[in-house]
Structures are given as structure tokens and as C-alpha cells.
Design a protein around this nucleic acid. Sequence first.
RNA 1: AGGCCCGUAGCUCAGUUGGUUAGAGCGCUACCUUGACACGGUAGAGGUCUGGGGUUCGAGUCCCCACGGGCCUACCA
Length: 906
Amino acid sequence: MAREIAKAYEPQQIEPRWAEFWVKEALFRADASAPGPVFSIVIPPPNVTGSLHIGHMLDHTEIDILTRWHRMRGYNTLYLPGMDHAGISTQRVVVRQLAEQGIDYRKLGREEFERRVWKWKEESGGMILGQMRQIGESCDWSREKFTLSPELSRVVREVFVRLYEEGLIYRATRLVNWCPDCLTVLSDLEVAHEERQGHLWHIKYPIVGTKEFLTVATTRPETMLGDTAVAVHPEDERYKRVVGRKALLPLMNREIPIIADEMVDREFGTGAVKITPAHDPNDFETGKRHKLAEIDVMTDDAHMNANAGAYAGLDRFQARKKIVEDLKAQGLLEKTTGHTSAIGLCERSKTVVEPRISTQWFCKMKPLAEPALAAVERGEIRMVPDNRREEYFNWMRNIRDWTLSRQLWWGHRIPAWYCKENKHVTVAREIPAKCATCGSANLEQDADVLDTWFSSGLWPFSTLGWPENTVDYKKYYPTSLLITGYDILFFWVARMIMMGIHFTGQVPFRAVYLHALVRTGSGEKMSKSKGTGLDPVALNQQYGTDAMRFCLASMAAPGTDIILSDDKLASARNFANKIWNAARFLFVNLDKFEQSGAKLEDLAGPEVRAKAPYAAGGEIPLVDAWLYARLAETVEMMNDALANYRFHEAAQGVYQFFWGDFCDWYIEWVKPELQSADRERATVAWKNLFAAFDAALRLLHPFMPFLTEELWHQLPQQAGARSIALGRFPEAELRWKNADALRDVAQIQEVVTALRAIRAELRVEARKKAGAEFSTTDRGLGDLIRTNKEAVERFAVLSELRMVLNERFDAKSGAVRSTATFDVRVVYSETVDAGAEMTRLKKEIEGLRKAIASKERQLGDETFRSRAPEMIIKGLEATLAQQRIEQEKLRRRLGDLDGGSQAAGT
RNA sequence: AGGCCCGUAGCUCAGUUGGUUAGAGCGCUACCUUGACACGGUAGAGGUCUGGGGUUCGAGUCCCCACGGGCCUACCA
């Protein structure tokens, strides 16, 4: 039966089938009762509003590689998927949608609005989970979680109440970050700072009872309407005499005190500062110290309010413009200078955040931070790359209280009830029937919801069933690892650690791997709004998901950002195609071999593969011994690399093994054997080839799940075996290790390469078989080349390789290459280009001269000899001896050529 | 303002505890459409590791300074 195999790999034909298969068969469902060491990992929950972007692609590729690798090594493996409810983003999306239909969400009322959001969630939310299935992530979909589900909402309430009872959650009136677009308060982390070019307006405030002015400098003139003081430094000689007087606030005609406070920087601006306690964090503190009034001059959507006098109703920026004009008209604007400052923007809406006085719920962080700091310090959580530890420590040490409440409808409603009779607050797990103090049933629940990140912080244990001591919790918590981008170290990682330790008494994960960001070709952070983002779904379609995964993995060196390009993706796609074609080679040739009665089952059955490599004539052929030795090396290297999150090394290692060793040398070497008339030799070659190929597929599987699954199914497998993903990652078998074979084949490769180089130099046509000679003083090498003469002849396209032991080649015909241990010559009618050859020789001799000189200098140095380790000295000496021989040979050769050309010239 | 990271071949990046002629992919040059693969094969050119100083027998690797680039934290109006 002849097999039909496409000439090039077409991932589009293959991927959807396996993606569906993995989900339908529930292949990655974890079994908490199964044996084996545990590997558990929870997804960093993506937004319900989100779709797969390139950052997820990297994150999920790394997670899935490690998950598949552990699973294949016999771990009881759980990869738990899910999403967070993304309070602000989701509400924004649905509000906008309703607005498009002409519906004001506020008019719908809270309950109806929530119903609409759930409907939206069911219909169009969670696109990313579908995409994760498409790209074949090996999640346990039966354990999928959502932060706003009833199950996880209970956990959130439990945690809130406990923290409240412990005195860690409190309600207070503070100056907070307010987003006038999202109409909610934000935590410090949700404010992004951006340097912007602005102005510094110098405004003259008349001093009451004098004809003088006190000039203040401000970047936000609109806030002056809420000024309740002007401050100067107590030791500022310029202003000492005005302290205690009053200034007349322009435009408002309000008398405000001139006070002295040490917070004033005498060097900045005029040294006099307007104080607006209701609109500036610094001024808020100053206001408290001096018991100043707090006048809020804005509405929640950043328009000026009734306190703003004539400016009421204007947008804050229009008001700024108008105020500056009016001041100018009244001659109170002294001057305007350019000023750059970092302004706070809302992460979601990009609106300028307005500091505002507001009553909110807060969480005390210091008591939570201390154990979280200590756990990382003590190494209970390994952080990779470890230079991120400093950032973590720094943030933890300077941590500030967390603003928990949000003025939204979509989220976990704060479990606090206010008594309408006596204002008493009841915080409870369940809806309280009456006020605890006065017994009134007239209660009203707090209207606000909790920050989404509050529930995300509980994710590693809330998803496993805490506070119940469930089977999953017992088995899979603490999780093994968290993989996420370093940009959300504080959002997630830090909070998960704090909450995890506080509530479970254990760290939530034993290690954190913080990966890089994917950047554009020009090195910028990708951004959807700038249109600089790459769409991984489209790229997966174009190049194949396996290629994308391999590409990302091969660039994912810890701590380094990734700049993705078409070139790199194409290179990974080429690799996938190479693997496909190696398989194609196997099966096309197998068709021929099967015609002589061989059966695939006998050559490649699972029990046949298990015993490879096989011997022919009592001995394992050199090239097979070599390949399995390389396989063992590669397995060890990959295991070590993956254990240390060195994805790029593992990827490059398997690339080198498959392409360089397996395709370029091994397949080429055994080609004739596969169709050999010698039945035993052919059978052994096939068995060794298939077993090696199968092992290579398993090595590749964590990186390229689709392609390897497809090809694995074309090999005979054990009855009931459903997927390569449930097979074993190869072990570095002791019997595969073979230092002699590694050395021998390396030597043969060196001889072959030397011969090929000569052919290229002489411009021998590719298929023209040339004669060649080989000479060595090394007996072992001579034997080795003689034994493998046929292979060398084939690799170097020779009619014959003559062994001319201990003979020195002259320059008469052909070209020569020499190493310290051997010389080769290709005999060819065309003569060498003596000029070019001499240039090459001179260059090489010069290189050697430098190398030799530096070694001689070092070895001649007594201090070096007495201090350097023995191994280094021995190594240098050995190399030096080799290089001297080599240099001598090259010099002689140069002399021959030189003499020859002179002779020809005369 | 404080902290962190980076500067190695034309490009993008590796380079484990300082130790023998600094590696890879892409690109480039030459040759090759050979029965797995041109998404391929073979051979090759190309860096002295941003600059300066220091420690050391020995520095791409450790220390200091400068220059260049990036990031994070921070209430300078």
C-alpha cells in the first residue's frame, strides 16, 4: 500500500483535527488519585473581554511546553484554565454596546444591567478560551474556572469578611485616583504614568491689606478654584513676613490663609504653593496638618461643579483654558513656562486620572507583605530570572494600602450592609437579616464592587476548592509554578503570594517564571491601539501553530525581550517542514522496502522500538551508536534546560539534533542500508531509524504538539495508546551513551568536510566522482577511516579514497587539506588556483601564529603555571602541540606552492 | 529622584561558576533543481565583544567611570 504524503507540511490541514481530538477525548483531564509526583499550574487568568494576543501566545506556549514535558515524564499533571471577570473592561464594553442601541445602562438598573453582562459573557465573552483550544493547549477543561462564578464568589466573600474581622480591611475617606471616564476609583497600580509636555502657570494672588502679590506656580490652574491656602517654606526669607496674612484667591474672591509648611520646595517655581486639599495628594496631607477646608470643585465626570463659581459646568480642560484667559485679562498671570511632568492615566480608558476625595474600602498591606517578602527572601518561592527579586522586594517594602472598592456594577459586590437607622456597618458572609446593634431590618448593601485583582489574588487556591479541604486542594496546592510576564509582577504575583500565605499558610506556588515581552521590529511594546500588535491567530494560520510555538520558544531566553519577525517565523516553519519531510522520506522508502515483504509492525512496533539500537553482525553499527549517543546527550541537555526555564536552549538543542544530526548525517549515512540486499543489515537499519525517529518526535512534542501527534499516529502504537502527549519523554538511556562513537563520527565528519571543502575549492561538479587520498600517522584514525571508507566516499562523492599511510603530499596535482592528525588530497584534472590557495594558507597560518604565540607566552609564565588549574595547563599544552603540527604542515604546503608558482613563472 | 536591565557578526540574539582559535538563526557569497525536503543541499566570508580605567597569571564574563538605548517605582506643585 503506497502512502500519500504531501510534499510540504500543511499545518492548516492537520491542526484543527488534533485540537478537536484533544478536547473531545478529554486527554488532559487530571486525576487527583493518580500516582506520581505532582505538577500543577494555574493559568494567569486572562480577561473575559480579551482575545489571544501575542503576549498570551508566548505565555501559554511556555506553560504548555512545561506542562506537556512534565506529563510525558510521568507527573500527575494539572493545567487549570479559566478567566477573570475584568470589572472595568467588561462594564465598558457592555455599556458601549448598550449606548449604541440608544440605551443608558443606568436607566436599566443594576439587576437588569448585570443580566445583560452575563448574557454578553455567554455569547461573546471568553473568546480566548476557544482560541486556547484551537492552539492545542493541554488544559483540563473540566476544571475551567471564572472569578465571578458563584463558587469563586463565595471564596471572595469569605476572604473579605476574614480580612475585615482581622482589621485588615477598613473604610476611610481619602484622596484617591479617580477615572472620570470609567467613573470609578482606581488603585495605584491601575494608574500609568506618562511624561507629557505641559506648562507651569505663574499666578499672582493679591495679599489682603497690601498692594503686593504672592505668586504661585501651578500645572493645573483649574484646581485653584478649590484652593484653601497658599503655603511657603517656614525658613524662606522671601516670604517670612507674609506668613499669617491672607491672600485673595483670584476669580473666586475668597480669602485664604498664607501658611508655612516644610513640604514646600523653595527651589521649585516661585517657592509659594497653592494648596488644594481636595485635588492633590500633597495638598490633602498639608490640609490635614493645617485643618484646612477641602473644597471639591469637580463632578465625577470631571466637569466643574457648583463650587467652581462661574466655571461650573465646564469640562476641566475647558475650564483651565478659560481660567488662564481670565487671569491674563485681569493681569494676574505673571508668566507661563514650559514644564514636563509625569501625569497619571487610567490604564483602561487612557483618561487623565483626577485625584479626588472619596470614601472607599481599603486593605492594609504591610501585615500581608511582610510574610510574602520573607517567603521569597528565604527561597520558598524561586523567582526566575532572580534579578526580578529586587523589584519585588522594593515594591513590597514600600507597599501602600490597596483601594479595593470600585464604583461598578460588574463584579463582587462588597459584603457590607449599612443600617439606615444608626449607620452601623455589618460585614457578613450571608445577607444579614438585621442590624447587629439596633436590630433594625432596614439595611442597605454597599453599592460598590471589589477590584477584579482582589479575586485574581486568590486564584491559585480559590480554583482548587479552598476553603474546603477538597481532594484537588490537597493534591494540587501549592501549585508548582506560575508563569507570567514581568509587567504584572505586582498585579498578580505579589498579591497571590500575599493572599496565598495569609489564607492557606503556604506559598501559592513554588516558583515564578517571569517571561519577557514580545516587541515589534522597532523594539517597542506592541500595542493594539497603535496598530503595532501582531495577531497570533493570523500568524498561526500562516505559519502553523507549531512553528509559532517553536519560534517563540527558541527566542525565549530568560530576561530578554523578544522581537518577532517574519524571518524568524519562516525559519521555524522551515523546521516543521524539515520534520515533515524526514517522515516523508521514511514512509516513501518504506513503501519500497515493504514490497520485499517487510512489515511496518516488525520494523517500528512499540516493543521493537523499545530495544533499539539493534546490532548487525553482532555489533551496533557506528553511526547508530553515534546517533543514540547524541540522542542521550540531547535528552539530558533538554531536561536540564527546561528545568531551568531555558526554553531557547532546549529548542535549539532539539533543532540541532533533528536537523544537524538526524537529517544531515544519520539519514544520509543509512540511506544505502535501508535498501540493502543484505536482509539483516536492512532490517536493523530500519529498526534503528524508526526508533530514533519516534524518540525525536517525543522530544519535539512539547514544542510542536500538532505535527508530532500527526506523525506519531502513523507509526504503530500500543493497543489503546491514544496520543503522543500521553507517551513518555525519552530518557537518556545508559546503554545509549557512547563517548567513542561520538568521537569517531566527529572525526569522520571532519575528514568528510575537509574533502568537500577541497571539492568546492577546485569547483568539481557536484555529481562528479573524484579520486582522493588520505594520510595519517594516527593508527586508530587510519583504521577508522578504512572501516568507514564507503561512507566517506559517498559523503564526499569520491570514486575512491586511497589510504596512503604516512605519505606526504606534494603540490603537483589536486588540492590538500591538513589538520594536525591527517591530510587529504583530491585528485582532479583542474589545477588549484595557487594564488587563492596561498591567500587562504597565509590567513590560516597567521591565525595559528597568534594562537601559538599567546599560548607560548602563557605557558612560559611561571605565575601562570603555578596558579592555573592543571586541566587548563594540560589543555593548552595539548592544543599548542596540535597547532604547531598544523602550522608546520601549512607552512610546508605554502612553500611547495610558492616554489611551484615560481618554477612555473620561469 | 530611586532602582533594574541592555549595548557581542549586516540584522535578531546565545555565551552557565572569569580559563584552550567567541557561537546560533536570518541575511550575504559561490556552487548544486541529486528520487524526503529549494520551506532544500554543500562550502565559505564576516565580530576582538560601545569607549576608557581597574582587579587578575588570565576578562565578552568581576569592579569603577563615561556614552548610548530600554523598563519599573515615586505626591515635586
